[in-house]
């Protein structure tokens, strides 16, 4: 397995080893990957928001749910509070493990996961109550697409949280080694921020 037939420069060997151990400082590789992935997700939601605003701009007459349907702003407000709270609990978990407190990490991750599931359950209940569907005019289409794909991302986040929780229960994280926790928390904050955008757009801006 001898590579490189050229004469080795004295420093070559050391440099090669440094390269193989990814010996670089700065943000951990996994976090760079997660940030880039989130950037692509921002563009994805950007596309969906564009469809929303396009529909709203080209609609003549009143913008909102079709006749017979309504929006439950109170429930949506409660769900917003749940998701925002879950961002805080997630961050408490991250701070805990940065101090090396694995016990607190388990607790906060468990709470975050529960809040995430509560949000999803609330969203499904909301859907069942609204009185209009995805096929009911362009408002129905953009409403369910935007909230539905956000919900799918929350679901993805709960899968990530479940993995983090399982690994935390096995004692796999420490103050020095917990990049998965950091990555999942970054994703979770992102999903939360998207929801604030969705909520403000659909319920507040109208």
């Amino acid at each position: 397995m001898t590579a490189g037939t050229m004469q080795a420069h004295p420093a070559g060997e050391e440099e090669a080893r440094a390269a193989i151990t990814h010996g670089q400082s700065g943000m951990p590789t996994v976090m760079v990957g997660m940030l880039l992935f989130i950037a692509s997700e921002v563009m994805f939601f950007g596309g969906l928001f564009a469809t929303y605003f396009n529909a709203r701009a080209t609609t003549v007459g009143e913008w909102g749910p079709p006749a017979g349907g309504h929006l439950d702003i109170a429930l949506a407000g409660v769900l917003t509070a749940v998701l925002v709270a879950s961002s805080f609990t997630m961050q408490f978990g991250v701070w805990a493990i940065r101090r090396g407190d694995a016990g607190k990490l388990k607790m906060w991750t468990g709470i975050t996961l529960a809040l995430g599931i509560l949000f999803l359950a609330g969203q499904l209940y909301d859907y069942s109550e609204l009185g209009f569907g995805i096929g009911d005019g362009v408002f129905g289409t953009v409403f369910y697409t935007l909230t539905g794909f956000h919900g799918a991302h929350v679901f993805g986040g709960t899968v990530g949280l479940t993995i983090v929780l399982a690994r935390a229960l096995r004692g796999q994280f420490s103050a020095r080694n917990h990049v998965a926790v950091e990555a999942v928390s970054m994703y979770w904050h992102f999903v939360d921020v998207v929801w604030i955008g969705v909520f403000s757009t659909i319920y507040l801006l109208r």
Binding site: A39, M43, G46, I134, T141, V142, T145
Partner: peptide
């Protein structure tokens, strides 16, 4: 990274129009 997700969003919208009665 920045352009392809927008196509994905469009493809999803098209799929919804075709299969779930959407009206994008």
């Amino acid at each position: 990274l920045l352009a392809t997700p927008v196509l994905t969003a469009g493809l999803i919208a098209l799929f919804i129009d075709r299969n779930y009665g959407g009206s994008f």
